[in-house]
Structures are given as structure tokens and as C-alpha cells.
């Protein structure tokens, strides 16, 4: 990719950059549906684990836990369906659609660039490099801190769901094997709950980094996840 050398008119040394189409529509739609589902799941999941104080009145006149659980399960199903679609897109989409599902640990260049990213985030490098897709540090973090925990949550989530749906449900047919690993579903609840915290910590860092990069690194970040295009704002590097 070449960066256009037209000189900007404002006082800063900004250079008119070139737009690159990075995140295709399915990736962007997935990102925001996924983000919304996860926030719903984390909120309702937390409330399932630590319900609010008792509601007054007849039991038959209230259904608070029922609604929390319903929202959790509905958001869980949406999340699962979109995750499958996203996985499909990793195969048919562009190279950037694959990035979060693997780490090219065999590539020396990857690790060199990764080191540079680490130096950038520890304030040792003065200039960030620019990447059309995810930077190597992001790619390395996405897999263990997000994709794998997310799969774990979906699998354990459906296994827990099968407990209510019954032994003859398709959920149990598909995910009952989880109970061979942890015969006592209390452990599955515990790990499902812990998984939520892993994802929440990821999201905290993720949003911070997205906002920070957007401001500091002179390339479009947040708007890239909306429009799909990466805009390089200057030509240094």
C-alpha cells in the first residue's frame, strides 16, 4: 500500500493518507452484535449469580429471575449463531477476517513486529507501526483472552442450558460431554462465571486500547470497525 504524499493544509505535519478496506461488513456486524450480546450476557449472568434483593408480593405475580434467565439464554443463542457465522466468514472472508483465530507463531517477522508493539505500549518505541489489520500484539491477545474464553463460555453455557432442557434435548446431545469432564455441574457454573471475568477484563483493555490508538497512533481505529476502512493519517514509519 502506498501512502499518498499530498501535503495537508493545517499547521500539523499531517499527510493525506489512503483508505484501505479492512473489515468487511460481516465482520463489523458481528463485532457489534457480539459486543451487545456479551454486555447483555455479562449483566444478566452476574444477576443470575447474585440476584437482587427479594421482590415483594405473590410469587405468581413476579418473574424476575425468569426474565434474567430468559434474556441470558436469548442473548446466548444470538451470540452462538453469530459466532458460527463469524467462523464461517473466517474461511471465506479476506485475510483480516482470519486474524483473530490463529497466531502465526512460526513467523519470525510476526514476533519482531510483536516486540515492536510491546515496546510501543511500554513507551520504549517512539512511533507505532501501522497495520492494515490487527497489530501482532492484538492478534496474540485476541486468541487466548477472547476467542478461546468465548468458545468456552458458549460450550459450558449450552451444557448448563441442557440441564434445564433435559437429557433428551439437542443441547445435551451436543454438549453433554462437558459433564464427563466435570461430573458436578457446580464446577461448570464456577468456570462459566470465571470465564465472564476473563472476557470483561479483555473488554476493559480492548476499549482502552482502541480509544488510545485512535488518538495516539495517527490511524483510524474506532471508525474502522464502523465503516470498515482504515485511514492512515500521516506517512511517518
Amino acid at each position: 500500500m502506498t501512502i499518498d504524499e499530498s501535503i495537508a493544509t493545517d499547521g500539523e505535519k499531517a499527510v493525506q493518507g489512503q483508505n484501505v478496506y479492512v473489515y468487511e461488513a460481516p465482520v463489523r456486524i458481528w463485532h457489534w452484535v457480539n459486543a451487545f450480546s456479551i454486555l447483555t450476557l455479562a449483566l444478566t449472568g452476574y444477576l443470575i449469580g447474585s440476584p437482587p434483593p427479594s421482590v415483594p408480593g405473590e410469587a405468581s405475580a413476579n418473574f424476575l429471575m425468569g426474565y434474567f434467565r430468559f434474556m441470558h439464554f436469548a442473548a446466548g443463542q444470538v451470540l452462538a449463531v453469530f459466532l458460527i457465522l463469524r467462523l464461517y466468514w473466517a474461511f471465506v472472508g479476506n485475510v483480516h477476517a482470519r486474524q483473530i483465530f490463529y497466531v502465526p507463531f512460526w513467523s519470525v517477522r510476526f514476533w519482531k513486529e510483536w516486540l515492536h508493539e510491546v515496546r510501543w505500549y511500554t513507551f520504549l518505541a517512539r512511533q507505532p507501526r501501522k497495520y492494515v489489520g490487527h497489530n501482532p500484539l492484538a492478534q496474540l491477545t485476541m486468541l487466548p483472552m477472547f476467542i478461546l474464553p468465548l468458545f468456552f463460555l458458549v460450550i459450558t453455557g449450552f451444557a448448563l442450558y441442557s440441564e434445564g432442557a433435559g437429557r433428551d434435548s439437542w443441547e445435551y446431545q451436543l454438549f453433554g460431554w462437558v459433564f464427563s469432564i466435570w461430573p458436578n455441574s457446580q464446577d461448570i457454573h464456577t468456570f462459566h462465571h470465571l470465564g465472564m471475568w476473563v472476557i470483561l477484563v479483555f473488554i476493559m483493555v480492548h476499549i482502552y486500547v482502541a480509544v488510545r490508538e485512535d488518538i495516539v497512533s495517527r490511524q483510524s481505529i474506532i471508525s474502522s470497525m464502523i465503516s470498515g476502512e482504515r485511514l492512515f493519517k500521516d506517512r511517518a514509519d
Binding site: G49, S50, Q186, T190, H193, W197, V201
Partner: peptide, 22 residues
């Protein structure tokens, strides 16, 4: 209701571990 996680030194539940990490 959730298993305490002894791995974290003192007894801690999933929420305590998660909140501390967060």
C-alpha cells in the same frame, strides 16, 4: 453455590477473583 478457588491462596469465589483482576 460456586466452588471456592483455593488456587488463589485465600479462599475466594469467582466474583472476588474477577473483581480483583478487573
Amino acid at each position: 453455590r460456586l466452588t471456592n478457588l483455593h488456587q488463589f491462596g485465600i479462599e475466594a469465589n469467582a466474583d472476588k477473583v474477577g473483581l480483583t483482576a478487573a
